[in-house]
Amino acid sequence: MSSGEAIPEQAGRPEDITAVPVRRPGRWVLAAIVLVVAVAIVRSVVTNPNFQWGVVGEYLFDGRILHGLRVTIELTVIAMGIGILLGVLLAIMRLSPNWLVSSASSFYIWFFRGTPVLVQLLFWYNIAALYPKIGLGIPFGPAFIHADANTLITPFAAAILGLGLNEGAYMAEIVRAGIISVDPGQADAAQSLGMTRLQTMRRIVLPQAMRVIIPPTGNETISMLKTSSLASVIVVTELLYASQLIYSVNFKTIPLLIAASFWYIVCTSVLYVGQYYLERYYGRGARDRGATPLQRIRAGLLSVRHQPSQ
């Protein structure tokens, strides 16, 4: 076949390009190093008797560990709840036209972001030293209800306060970023319809701000799950302290730390998946969201099945 005939024949659809790819020996070397290191790590983890995998398995479902896990989850959920509510309130205050209100919010954020959360936890734990009696009543006037600070602020309550109030400062900035990301024309439109500032915020601005607020809030929740382990220093028997209590008696330190880590990773993984779907929900209608990993796997399986045999 002469080339003179071939060209008009193939003009419609040129042949696929089959070029020799550039050789990248560096990549192969790097990949080999990574592989060797990974194998070495796995081998040492599995064969090193000091990990005591048997002991890890023994304690993974121990009642005390599971109780600690529950406390950790409670701390995370309640502290994040407080943090989110406080964050919304502080963000709205920060954007208030009233100078005093907005500076109060700025001051709060400045103060709580400026001190380590560990220090805040210790402060709340020792609050009785500052205010032995806590009362509810008229400012500068008589109090109606009195309580002993030591009975009112239990270690768990101190942890909730410390983690929640600190989280509020961070959530405030996240919510504020979400609010100012919404086109001001939206508030104009709502107000021109006769909605008050609060109605505008609640019905129009916040729902739209959610798309910006959700992803960093997911990160904050994952971070809170881990930060809650700081409550171990104020004798809250959350996951870390529960395992510490056990290994302080039987000295099986490493296996118990591994057991605790295992549950932390399980929880963060669950949160990670939850965050993914929440983001999809609030992104609805905004743009093409693509398939979820599950949908992709399912579609992949189907296409394999339907592939014509060659």
Binding site: G185, Q186, A189, S192, M195, T196, I204, P207, G285
Partner: peptide, 20 residues
């Protein structure tokens, strides 16, 4: 102020419909 605004309709150049 809100009650008075509710008696005045306003239409904007960029529509400002509520997208959600």
């Amino acid at each position: 102020v809100a009650r008075k605004r509710s008696q005045i309709g306003m239409v904007f150049q960029h529509f400002n419909l509520f997208p959600h």
